[in-house]
């Protein structure tokens, strides 16, 4: 039980924040408080994204020798994201090759039920996936196939030749390192900007509301509107 909770600790925080935020929006008649609730609500999402960006045993997606494996894949692998994929894939392939199926099966478990633990859910899944792709390239799409091939070649390099330092580290220190997938961070940075902008507009609106109504209480505003209507005889 405790383990279950501790494994999902981040998610619990996310849910709690989300509920608090929503409660703030729902319960408060004060417009500013409502915005605060909204912000908290949004913040919970940021946490969710960041949580999913944490990967146990990940490696930075940097390809060691981009120039070496040309033969048509170079342009693909040269890009950052592709490299990240490839790196992860390489790591797992190597793992599979050397340490038997322990970690791989672990990864596959996570892949099957993502979010069950806070560990390397995403990266693990992807890694497993890509590794899988390496052996069963044909079952995936064209692009996948190509990446898979690249990974395969990388894995071979790691196994037989002098593997690059990154791959080497990956092989030996997987369990201890929490790798941060940069992409969710980037995404959430954007989301934070959006959130701030929304908050700013919201607060500006509250200021204007206060200017014209003299209050920021929802019920008082409704009363004021209603009496306006009565005056115009249209209620």
């Amino acid at each position: 039980m405790v383990e279950l909770i501790s494994e999902r600790f981040n998610y619990i925080i996310v849910i709690a924040l989300m509920m608090i935020g929503l409660y703030g929006v729902v319960s408060s008649a004060n417009l500013v408080k409502r915005l605060v609730g909204l912000s908290i609500f949004q913040t919970s999402v940021f946490l969710l994204y960041i949580t999913m960006g944490k990967v146990f045993g990940g490696v930075p997606p940097i390809l060691p020798y981009p120039a070496e494996h040309g033969d048509g894949h170079g342009s693909d692998a040269g890009h950052g994201t592709a490299a990240a994929h490839a790196g992860e894939g390489a790591h797992h392939s190597v793992e599979a090759a050397h340490d038997g199926d322990h970690i791989q099966s672990d990864a596959q478990t996570h892949g099957a039920t993502p979010g069950a633990t806070q560990s390397d859910a995403h990266a693990g899944a992807q890694g497993a996936d890509v590794a899988h792709g390496a052996s069963q390239a044909a079952s995936h799409g064209d692009l996948r196939e190509r990446v898979g091939e690249a990974v395969h070649s990388l894995a071979e390099q790691a196994a037989h030749h002098d593997a690059g330092p990154a791959a080497y580290d990956g092989v030996h220190h997987t369990a201890e390192i929490i790798y941060s997938n940069p992409l969710p961070h980037v995404l959430i940075l954007t989301a934070i900007v959006v959130g701030v902008a929304t908050l700013a507009v919201g607060l500006a609106l509250v200021v204007r509301i206060r200017e014209s109504y003299g209050t920021i209480e929802d019920s008082a505003i409704a009363r004021a509107d209603y009496s306006d209507e009565i005056e115009r005889g249209t209620a």
């Binding site: 929006v25 729902v26 008649a29 409502r34 929802d218 409704a222 209620a235």
Partner: peptide, 20 residues
């Protein structure tokens, strides 16, 4: 009607409840 139970102006909180 505008003041009727189905078409009254609702505060945003209630709308949030609905969406939830």
């Amino acid at each position: 009607s505008p003041a009727g139970s189905f078409a009254r102006d609702v505060p945003s909180g209630i709308m949030a409840v609905w969406s939830t």
